[in-house]
């Protein structure tokens, strides 16, 4: 495959662009699907509570991100992402979609996508942070001018735009949970910006295991 060097190979562990910052903040990590993933910050109960009562943010940069350039009709509306098994298909431009998937689910998606158009692996190009909790929108309001109100950005809403003064994307994954994608080279900067906003609002960084599942009913404090 001529673009194989863009993808994560089996020979070494992959590291998120946010990992150093997370480890510096007390993160505990383990290797999953070839990635060193932050599973917790040492207190899963408090982390889970933060996502229910205030806000938590977690590094999901290990998600596979595939760019699909195609010339077919899109099966879903502009500005609205399509839920796939283990992932999302997000419209960026009329002929360009971004596929997000757990690494374990990505391999199954890829053949179908390649039949549709040209696929390019952007996993390493984009960092990803989930921001979850009732104050998630307030967190975004601290560094992002996108209108993320429910009426403008309902669940499944997907929007490219400026996030923390850099080009990015925001996906409304479920009530009170957003996924923000940004240039991987901005990883440390992004961590600083989001941590600053979250901690000011009483939230905290959380491990991926503490995030509310996308398809789970929202819990209430």
């Amino acid at each position: 495959m001529s673009l194989g060097f863009l993808s994560i190979s089996a020979g070494a562990t992959a590291r998120s662009p946010l990992l150093d910052a997370a480890l510096g903040g007390g993160a505990r990590s383990e290797v999953r699907d070839g990635w060193e993933v932050v599973s917790s910050f040492g207190d899963p109960t408090a982390e889970r509570s933060a996502c229910i009562e205030s806000v938590g943010f977690a590094d999901l940069s290990h998600l596979t991100k595939l760019e699909l350039q195609h010339d077919g009709a899109r099966p879903f509306a502009a500005g609205e992402a399509l839920r796939l098994p283990g992932g999302w298909r997000c419209p960026v431009r009329p002929r360009l979609d971004l596929l997000l998937a757990e690494p374990s689910a990505a391999a199954a998606l890829r053949p179908g996508l390649e039949a549709e158009g040209r696929v390019c692996d952007l996993t390493g190009s984009l960092g990803a942070l989930a921001i979850a909790g009732p104050l998630a929108r307030e967190v975004f309001a601290r560094f992002c001018a996108l209108d993320l109100r429910e009426g403008s950005m309902p669940v499944r809403g997907f929007r490219p735009g400026s996030v923390a003064r850099t080009p990015g994307y925001v996906l409304h994954e479920r009530p009170e949970r957003f996924l923000v994608l940004f240039g991987a080279a901005y990883g440390q900067y992004f961590w600083e910006v989001v941590a600053d906003a979250v901690e000011r609002l009483g939230g905290r960084p959380v491990g991926t295991d503490s995030l509310p599942a996308i398809d789970e009913e929202p819990a209430r404090a």
Binding site: G183, Y186, G187, Q188, Y189
Partner: peptide, 9 residues
């Protein structure tokens, strides 16, 4: 006071 700096991996 945050600077949008790019850093390599």
């Amino acid at each position: 006071p945050f600077e949008a700096a790019k850093r390599s991996s």
